[in-house]
């Protein structure tokens, strides 16, 4: 199935783009997705505080993803 990944803040720099379409197996959880992203983009391993939202809701790691889910990667920002 295909997922849409939206990157905010510094996650945009890590992905090199704002939006990414990612093909994943059908039984993928948020944790699996994180692992997959880590494999492709090792910098995510340093971003320990990355929040992941699925369809505008903060998501626990064991949540099973569905086709067409929109995943947002939200790192903290500190500017004022």
């Amino acid at each position: 199935m295909q997922l849409t990944i939206l990157a905010f803040g510094i996650a945009k720099d890590i992905l090199g783009r704002r939006e990414l379409q990612l093909e994943v197996p059908d039984d993928t959880t948020v944790r699996d997705l994180k692992d997959r992203l880590l494999e492709r983009y090792p910098e995510f391993s340093r971003l320990v505080s990355l929040a992941i939202a699925v369809n505008s809701e903060y998501s626990a790691e064991d949540v099973l993803l569905q086709e067409r889910d929109e995943i947002a990667l939200i790192p903290p920002v500190s500017g004022g």
Binding site: I10, R46, L47, S49, A51, V77, G80
Partner: peptide
């Protein structure tokens, strides 16, 4: 609750380092 841990130093640029659109704040 949102960000239990801070990012490592230097990972997320500040406004001085990363720039900021003047009208944004």
């Amino acid at each position: 609750s949102l960000f239990p841990q801070p990012p490592p130093p230097g990972m997320v640029p500040s406004c001085a380092e990363g720039g900021v659109l003047g009208v944004l704040p």
